[in-house]
Nucleic acid binder design. Structure first.
Length: 508
RNA sequence: GGUCGAUUCGUCUAACGGUUAGGACAAGAGAUUCUCAAUCUCUAAAUAGGAGUUCGAUUCUCCUAUCGACUACCA
């Protein structure tokens, strides 16, 4: 069996959205699973739509996801260059080869003429197609005398090379995900392969030539390419490369969370979740949010994306990149489009937050505390984080969840005060303060034990006392185990906060 | 319009001719707790419709419906 070599071949026309990231991910996982190579090729054959910064964005996004490029733009390799605009000299030869073998022809019809033709026919309720039926009436090397063709080319007239689609032939194709597909060529048109205007090939030619030259073994791409699969099969055949052509796998589309259609760039702003891995600053100044900037951990993001259209056949849901590489296979990829769910994305992130190490989360928390004017050590932050990490969905939640551990309450939640801060309860707090004051050190287990004994012995109202203590220590009516907090801030600070609360809260 | 593709709980999906149609997210209820989350338990929730093939169809075939992609000198 031949060496597995796959490529991710985006066009630098803007930010990569999560559908594109998923395609890259599946290619990468497939390569890793099979001990193959993952190649990054940039398909920038459309000079009109090139967007500055898009290529850098793609590379950075892959890096952030932990998708390592073995070969390609940014890392080089035996088939360099990997940017199609830098390979422009290669393609003309192949286009000409097709003309010579009778599989393609020159066409001189201007873009304006064709769009006019199209508009005319549409107004009559018909559709125009440059195909086997119409090419005999148009301006090309099939209808013009050879000398005239040569004259026009020599005169510098603009031309294009079109594929000469066979007339009535069934193309038999196999797709790894979709199975066997048959298409009759009579429904297909004569696609442009090369344009003299910018001396660049179109996608179809460049794609086939490069996949062949780069020895690509499997093409894994989005379902939107399925309709051009027959053309690609025919191109391989025309070149005489059918025996070595890659196997194809067309991935299902990612759909909008609500409504209809495939996920698009605008959906992010509309529904309030990111559609891009990284924040994207468009050249026109528009900024779109990114998963990274929204606080998603790369592992969670990748995990979520991997399961959108693929599953391992088991009930496992949490996968490291290594596990994904081990378990991924194309025959477990589903056929139907997957609706993207922001809720599930959040759930994955929360799972990754709780399993992240304390020191890692501390490194996220320290700068947040600093911006709130609180300096603390990584160790201290790690201790704080350990108490609350299963309550956080995003890194930004960490500050709110730990602020009261580093700073005495500056106000007291009114509702909680009104409910619990009553004279009889406050009296218990004074007693409790006395108990704490007696302690050598305030340690969670022993302090809790002591307080419980005291409450039980006196048949005291546990809920009221504990809630009042919580108000005094934290200023709010909810949060993690109160004794853990007391231990964290220490005996002296605990007493100080109780005193402050007794002083400043009006008894309800 | 044409061509191709898809169709299991609200959502992501499992079951590759024989299961009480399973899991997860979200929802609801309960347990737990000093509170709120988390956690645990439970509940509700699906094979688009119709014909076939078969002893038996979620699974195979056909038709219909719905959704989607494509239909550029874009990728």
């Amino acid at each position: 069996m031949r060496k597995v070599r796959v490529r991710f071949a985006p066009s630098p026309t803007g930010a990569l959205h999560i559908g594109g990231v998923r395609t890259a991910l599946y290619n990468y996982l497939f390569a890793r699973h099979n001990g193959g190579d993952f190649i990054l090729r940039i398909e920038d054959t459309d000079s009109q739509r090139f967007v500055p910064g898009a290529e850098e964005y793609i590379i950075e996004a892959l890096q952030w996801c932990g998708i390592k490029v073995d070969e390609g733009v940014g890392v080089g390799g035996p088939h360099a260059p990997y940017r199609q605009s830098e390979r422009r000299d290669i393609y003309l030869k192949y286009a000409l080869q097709l003309v010579e073998s009778g599989n393609a022809y020159y066409a001189f019809d201007s873009a304006e003429d064709l769009s006019k033709l199209r508009a005319d026919m549409e107004s009559r309720g018909e559709t125009f197609s440059y195909d086997s039926k119409s090419r005999g009436t148009l301006c090309n090397s099939l209808t013009l005398p050879a000398e005239e063709v040569k004259r026009r080319i020599d005169a510098g007239e603009q031309w294009v090379i079109r594929f000469k689609m066979p007339e009535n032939e069934n193309v038999e194709m196999d797709d790894i995900i979709r199975g066997h597909i048959t298409i009759n060529t009579s429904t297909l048109d004569d696609k442009v392969l090369y344009k003299s205007a910018d001396a660049l090939p179109t996608y179809h030619l460049a794609n086939i030539v490069d996949d062949h030259l780069m020895e690509i073994s499997h093409v894994i791409r989005g379902e939107e390419w399925l309709p051009s699969l027959p053309l690609h099969f025919l191109l391989y055949r025309a070149f005489g490369w059918s025996d070595s052509q890659p196997l194809f796998a067309h991935l299902p589309l990612l759909l909008k969370p609500q409504g209809q259609g495939k996920l698009s760039k605008r959906d992010g702003d509309k529904f309030g979740f990111p559609v891009f891995p990284l924040e994207w600053h468009a050249p026109d100044g528009e900024v779109s949010m990114g998963y990274r900037e929204s606080g998603y951990l790369p592992g969670a993001f990748v995990n979520m994306l991997a399961l959108l259209g693929w599953n391992p056949g088991t009930e496992q849901e949490i996968f490291s990149m290594e596990e994904l590489c081990q378990q991924f296979s194309l025959d477990k990829v589903s056929k139907s489009g997957a609706r993207f769910s922001p809720d599930k994305a959040k759930w994955f992130n929360a799972q990754y937050m709780r399993t992240a190490s304390d020191s890692f989360l501390a490194s996220l928390l320290v700068p947040q505390l600093a911006s709130a004017g609180i300096e603390t050590s990584l160790e201290r932050a790690a201790d704080a984080v350990a108490i609350i990490k299963e309550r956080a969905t995003f890194p930004k939640d960490l500050l709110d969840l730990t602020l009261y551990m580093f700073r005495a309450p500056q106000s007291y939640d009114e509702k909680s005060v009104a409910k619990f801060w009553k004279e009889e309860n406050v009296a218990y707090i004074r007693d409790l303060r006395g108990i704490f004051a007696e302690l050598e050190v305030l340690e969670k287990e022993s302090a809790e034990h002591l307080v419980r004994e005291w409450i039980e012995a006196g048949q005291l109202p546990m809920g009221k006392i504990m809630n009042c203590l919580r108000i005094a220590i934290m200023g709010i009516g909810q949060g993690p185990d109160i004794f853990s907090i007391c231990e964290f801030i220490g005996k002296q600070e605990t007493l100080r906060r109780i005193d402050a609360a007794l002083d400043s809260i009006q008894v309800a």
